[in-house]
Amino acid sequence: MRLPMFEFAEAESAAEACRMLAGAGPEAALLAGGTDLLVRMKRGLLCPQRVVSIRRLRAGRPAVARDGARLTIDPLATMTEIAADPLLREACANVAAGARAVGSPLIRNLATLGGNLASARPCADTAPPLLTWDASVRLESTGGERSVPLHDFFTGPGASALRLDELLVAVEIELPAGSSGSAFFKLGQRAALEIAIASAAARITLDRPGGIVLEARIALGSVAPVPLRARAAESLLAGREPREELLAAAAAAAAREARPIDDLRASAAYRREMVAVLVRRALAAALASAGGGQ
């Protein structure tokens, strides 16, 4: 398979990348890991005149930096780095798990967190986990920087709040107080190289180990036009004692919130049913790692 012809530019800094994007509109495409962009270009779905590589912006920084309760994740970190990052594995295990669920080792060595989010696929494996941590993304352009909560970032299949002249420069998480645990489950036919039929991430924060739920977050993949927060399900859990029946009720609520479609991978009905299963399992696992339950 061949790539169409384009001009190649390599940005040395975020500011330079922004300058390259400014005014270029859809004629320019950002190249990070390339696992999505190059495939779409080979298939003729995209034909940018200019490809701006931002790989050099990564330049030796750690994938994740922690400042008090704030985690800042470099969006140019590869899925391999995210999956292995000790800070994430400790504090936000489901984010690492989501990264690990992407494609295969060969893809994870190229694909970046920023690419996974910016491509805004409903099936993006890192999106539901990050949604459960109320993550936000920092977007930069020549006009300045802004921060957008991730739950406002996704606007439709392949569409996001990211403007054509903007660069995703950071993913930020403010870790909540209390005892948190998280989990991510992805359902596919195969154990690798899969696009999720459905996925679910959960985060539960208890007031103390064995205590009541301060806050719960549930997010779903591949069952709506965007990675979706299941807010009604979340609200069932807040302030309650996390009993098994309650988790099941929340899972059922999440299934009602899903807006799945039929496609070649599964029917809408099956997807909805799987949301209940995956959410229940994710909640149980999150609760266990938060130090709750039995």
């Binding site: 190649f8 190249l31 890991g33 390339g34 696992t35 590589s53 790989r55 893809i107 190229l110």
Partner: peptide, 19 residues
């Protein structure tokens, strides 16, 4: 098409030569 790029295996069909 796997090759090692700086020691890590990648699909070389998804890497630009310029990269």
């Amino acid at each position: 098409c796997t090759v090692l790029l700086d020691g890590l295996p990648v699909s070389s069909c998804l890497v630009l030569a310029l990269q």
